[in-house]
């Protein structure tokens, strides 16, 4: 928590709010802080009480640092309890997703690399093969995590990852949920052409 008062720059705030609103497609300025979203957010206790309405306030005030590094941006479950209950139909889950993408573009990493690596592993694996094979996808997720931990020389995290994921794999195996089959889709060629078309696009 900063002890200095926040320096509000109306021009910068306006630019930031417009960018987030355009990328997420949400009417951010319509929020009147009624907090129906806060009451229903399942991760509110986990984020240090950064609730969806506070996230919107950070954006409106142009507090880019808080907006891109707070816990809700990364921990939002995309459950849309907020978006469904908002009287102004603001789907804050999409704002959190947009802030995740903006943080990654700006090179800001979440404190734990797993938060970004899971979705990256899922997405890139599905592009590569056309379909998700769970073992392969989890394997890619682990490799990305290991690489991030290695860069920070965090050997303790590496060991604990290996142990926790081995336990998970063994548990899935015992429950007959671990499948050695491999499936893929020939459509990955079309998908990769679409992906090339999409690179550099921020506003859909």
């Amino acid at each position: 928590m900063s002890t200095q008062p926040y320096k509000f720059d109306p021009h910068a705030a306006d630019i930031f709010t417009r960018e987030v609103a355009a990328r997420s497609g949400q009417k951010i300025n319509s929020c009147y802080q009624c907090k129906r979203c806060a009451a229903g957010c399942p991760v509110a206790e986990d984020t240090g009480m950064v609730t969806p309405n506070r996230l919107i306030r950070m954006v409106v005030l142009g507090d880019i640092e808080s907006a891109l590094t707070n816990k809700l941006t990364w921990k939002c479950l995309f459950c849309h309890t907020c978006g469904t209950r908002c009287p102004n139909n603001i789907k804050t889950g999409r704002i959190a997703d947009t802030l995740k993408k903006m943080a990654l573009d700006a090179g800001i990493d979440p404190q734990q690399p797993e938060y970004k690596n899971f979705h990256r592993a899922f997405f890139h694996y599905s592009l590569r093969h056309g379909r998700i094979n769970e073992i392969g996808m989890m394997g890619e997720f682990q490799l990305r995590n290991m690489w991030d931990h290695l860069k920070k020389r965090n050997y303790v995290a590496i060991i604990s990852e290996i142990m926790s994921k081995s336990t998970l794999a063994w548990k899935m195996f015992k429950q007959k949920r671990l499948h050695l089959s491999f499936h893929s889709s020939k459509g990955r060629d079309e998908i990769s052409r679409l992906y090339k078309k999409s690179s550099g696009r921020k506003w859909i």
Binding site: S126, L127, I191, R201
Partner: peptide, 25 residues
């Protein structure tokens, strides 16, 4: 025939265009 992954919740967190394109296929 030859269906492909829809991207689930992960695609939208990386690339908005693909989040629509994958189910569109």
């Amino acid at each position: 025939e030859d269906w492909s992954c829809c991207g689930a919740t992960s695609a939208g967190k990386i690339n908005d265009f693909m989040a629509v394109a994958l189910p569109a296929r």
